[in-house]
Nucleic acid binder design. Structure first.
Length: 488
RNA sequence: GGUUCCUUGGCCGAGUGGCUAGGCACCGGUCUGCAAAACCGUAUACGGCGGUUCGAAUCCGCCAGGAACCUCCA
């Protein structure tokens, strides 16, 4: 397996050559959603970023086990204050089971991901289905001497851990500084130090998700599920752990501490973090209330949106920026993405119809290598797209009859576009399903044949009528040298 | 306040020392009955001030502006 895929490791703050522990197998763990509300644009970013990584690693020949967890524990309280959502409110009023809420939003999450063409992970473990593993993991940390009990809860002893290991290595913090800058919060009297974090929390009376444990009726700490489930499915040492940049501290920092304390060694080799999506320069997030849900994009039902945007437009929009940069959302930016994506996909469709010539007048040989090179440079999708757009220009020139391509070159282009556009970037024609019915296609073709005939007879009133009415119905009609093209 | 990071043309967004990224928008042209699409071409850039260098958007310093994180909050 000859390649030099470089990925940026948050742990070392530089790009590193990716070398799997047990090639050709690769273990990939990504922090998934907390399913208590609809997924918003911010959720699409890690899903697409790591979907891209999953697809690319697979393309390189690796056998990837991709684990993406579902957080459905610990944060669902009876008095949840995220009451704006009607369904959640209704569920609360109707005293629904928390698992009903979880299932409801998980179904919606999966549907949104499918629309974004995000491949399902290999394993999607629920935190609630791994309480035993989390209890055992907590016990290991207690046995190792890095945790203590207090009032039925179990806390991680960060100071003690830091004497032997380095707490803060991922986020670049030091413990002294943390002790100084940490805000005072309620309920911290149970903890020895403010930097300590909960491994197991005793449930307050209103907390409806609770399990029995050696310490109390309660629930696992937030960071515990990833340590327990990651090592369960990927082993005590695995290759890549991903997630949003906002999870670096404290979530991933604590995860490292937990796993190192329990196992005596580093669990994760490469930490990868996608940056945030911003809106007016500010992070789009639940707590700020400035998020737009994916369904709102798909339906165009948000005051900031002038129209509906397809899932593919969202995907393309995200891939147009490098995953470690912030990307600023705006209606205008999405409109630009929509047009760019259409251009790329239309060119791809046009490529299928190109008639090869004896020789090529343009050079297309370097495209594959250039795209590979960009991908291997820490998944630089904007560069991949720029190469594809340059190739698009060449393809359109040929389609215009101003240049020619040999059969071999046409085949190469088809192959490269299929690989990068479809298989790796995961971009596809959204309206495919609607236009696949042969009879339907032929009916439209027939109408346009009639229009062409009318044009030949200079009956422009009729030809314009056909075009205008089809346009009103949502069709886009383009005349070409040979005849016409249409799309919905 | 602390830590880390960012500031590129009208908009989005690559690029870490020298060679036009790309997309959208704009303008001019080709094509077309018209339109759309496509193609060709022009223009607009590197927050400010200094420094290093033959040469800096790219390295260093200062200043200005902005962001993320600073623990149960998801």
């Amino acid at each position: 397996m000859e390649h030099t895929l470089q990925i940026y490791n948050t742990l070392t703050r530089k790009k590193e050559v990716f070398i799997p522990i047990h090639s050709p197998n690769v273990g990939l763990y990504v922090c998934g959603p907390t399913v208590y509300g609809d997924a918003h644009l911010g959720h699409a970013r890690p899903a697409i970023t790591f979907d891209l990584l999953f697809r690319y690693l697979t393309h390189l020949g690796y056998k990837v086990r991709y684990v993406r967890n579902i957080t459905d524990v610990g944060h669902l309280e009876h008095d949840a204050d995220e009451g704006e959502d009607k369904v959640a409110k209704k569920a609360r009023v109707e005293q629904k089971e928390p698992m009903e809420i979880v299932q409801f939003y998980l179904n919606r999450y999966r549907k949104a991901m499918e629309q974004l063409n995000v491949l399902p992970p290999s394993i999607e473990p629920h935190a609630s289905g791994h309480i035993m593993e989390q209890i055992e993991f907590t016990q290991k940390i207690i046995d190792a001497g890095f945790a203590y009990q207090s009032e039925g809860s179990v806390y991680f002893d960060v100071e003690k851990y830091n004497k032997q290991y380095h707490y803060g290595k991922l986020s670049g913090r030091n413990i002294e500084e943390l002790l100084e800058t940490t805000r005072t919060l309620d309920g911290q009297i149970e903890k020895k130090k403010s930097v300590d974090f909960a491994l197991w929390k005793k449930a307050s009376p209103e907390h409806i998700m609770r399990w029995k444990s050696p310490w109390s009726d309660g629930f696992p700490g937030w960071h515990m599920e990833c340590s327990a489930m990651g090592t369960k499915y990927l082993g005590e040492e695995f290759d890549i752990h991903g997630g949003g940049m906002d999870l670096v501290f404290p979530h991933h920092e604590c995860e490292i501490a937990q796993s190192t304390a329990a196992l005596g060694k580093e669990t994760v080799r490469y930490w990868m973090h996608n940056n945030m999506i911003t809106i007016n320069g500010q992070k789009m997030g639940k707590s700020l209330g400035n998020f737009i849900t994916l369904d709102e994009f798909f339906g165009g039902s948000h005051p900031l949106l002038s129209q509906a945007f397809s899932a593919m437009t969202i995907r393309f929009f995200i891939l147009q920026a490098h995953y470690r940069s912030t990307v600023d959302f705006s209606n205008e930016a999405l409109q630009a993405s929509e047009k760019g994506l259409n251009k790329l996909l239309e060119t791809y469709a046009r490529l299928q119809k190109i008639t090869p010539s004896a020789t090529s007048t343009i050079d297309v040989s370097g495209l594959r290598a250039k795209c590979e090179e960009a991908m291997k440079d820490d998944l630089n999708t904007p560069i991949v797209l720029s190469h594809l757009f340059e190739a698009s220009k060449a393809i359109n020139t040929v389609a215009d009859g101003k240049a020619s391509l040999s059969a071999k070159d046409v085949a190469e282009l088809k192959s490269v576009f299929k690989l990068f556009v479809e298989d790796i970037l995961g971009l596809q024609q959204t309206t495919k399903d609607n236009t696949q019915h042969e009879a339907y296609q032929k009916a439209i073709d027939l109408l346009l044949e009639l229009r062409l005939e009318a044009k030949r007879n200079k009956d422009f009133a009729l030809s314009d009528k056909i075009r205008n009415e089809l346009t009103t119905l949502g069709f886009s009609i383009k005349d070409t040298k040979e005849g016409f093209e249409w799309s919905l």
